[in-house]
């Protein structure tokens, strides 16, 4: 990404911090004896949307837990914005958008209460919201087009609306680094397009986003970086060179559905081009052309209607 690191204004905790995420040789072993992550290494800078791709159980949630400080790596280290995990969290450098399944939607909180939870790090000891906190909440809800739902209980919302509320909370937090766990699951195409547009805006203002997703087809649409995970980092780097059919096959093994239609299957003339469709049961990724490893996947051209 060409955008220069941007100093985020207004965030009392994260002010003057440049977004970055460094995961170095991180190994996480659980007491049960399972090694969920082995020597994972990658680096990300400001102004990045990075797709985190891998099968279930490949260590995506463990990686998120390590970044959030819920598990301590037995080896290696995570640095966020040049700080240790605990320092970074204290300064509110990381916002987190949870999976829908992790949230108790019957909880007696309203939409605006949830977004206000993003502001706690900026508040005083008693967490009494100031005018500025309220303003930020309104502004964030407006940005995800959810302002008119502010007095609804969270369980009354649709799947896409729920996601947008939690995105608004991340915006209200004004954190330079944002983790998104499966933001497109259970979301309609319109909301997906809106979320992607918002992520692009955040990228332009210097944020760093790490997005775990099964939605392989949209990865080339909005991710400029990709990390492929299967117990360890199989490949990481710019989408164009990393998100290749070969790497995806390695990451997913037999789990991925894959179709390859070559020119010869369709007509008699010689044709070196082929269509490859890879899908993890959500939006598939499609490659078309003469099939070198440097082949770029097709991008979506429709605007998502």
């Amino acid at each position: 990404m060409s955008s220069a690191p941007v100093f985020l204004a207004g965030a009392s905790g994260a002010e003057g911090v440049v977004a970055s995420l460094s995961v170095r040789d991180v190994t996480v072993a659980y007491p049960s004896g399972v090694t969920a992550l082995l020597d994972a290494t990658f680096e990300l800078g400001a102004g990045t949307i990075c797709g985190l791709v891998g099968v279930n159980g490949s260590g995506k949630s463990t990686l998120f837990k390590a970044i959030m400080g819920f598990v301590t790596p037995s080896r290696g280290q995570v640095r966020i914005c040049g700080l240790s995990v605990n320092q970074a969290l204290k300064r509110c450098c990381v916002a987190y958008v949870p999976q829908s399944e992790e949230v108790d939607w019957n909880f007696p909180v309203l939409v605006e209460d949830v977004v206000m939870m993003g502001r706690y790090g900026h508040m005083n000891f008693l967490r009494i919201p100031t005018a500025k906190d309220k303003e930020k909440v309104t502004e964030s809800l407006e940005r995800v087009n959810m302002l008119r739902f502010r007095h609804h209980q969270i369980g009354e919302l649709s799947g896409g609306q729920k996601k947008r509320v939690f995105l608004a909370r991340a915006l209200a937090q004004e954190a330079p680094v944002i983790l998104l766990d499966e933001p497109f699951t259970g979301v309609d195409v319109k909301t997906e397009t809106a979320i992607i547009e918002l992520l692009r805006q955040l990228r332009a203002s210097g944020h760093l986003m790490l997005v775990s997703t099964h939605n392989l087809g949209s990865v080339p649409d909005f991710c400029d970086q990709v990390v492929l995970l299967n117990r360890t980092v199989l490949a990481s780097g710019p989408t164009a060179t990393t998100f290749t059919p070969q790497n995806l096959e390695r990451a997913f093994g037999g789990v991925l559905r894959s179709f390859r239609i070559e020119g010869g299957d369709l007509h008699d003339d010689h044709d070196a081009r082929s269509v490859t469709v890879l899908t993890d049961d959500e939006r598939p990724v499609v490659y078309y052309g003469e099939g070198g490893p440097e082949e770029e996947p097709l991008r979506r051209t429709d605007k998502g209607a």
Binding site: G13, M68, G69, F70, L89, K90, R91, C92, V94, A95, Y96, P98, E102, V103, D104, F107, V109, M117, G118, R119, Y120, G121, R127, R169, Q173, A175
Partner: peptide, 18 residues
Amino acid sequence: RDLLLYCFDPAQARAVGL
């Protein structure tokens, strides 16, 4: 409010430095 956030969403409680 802190206790409520802890019950509702421990990950967010951590993210805002509680």
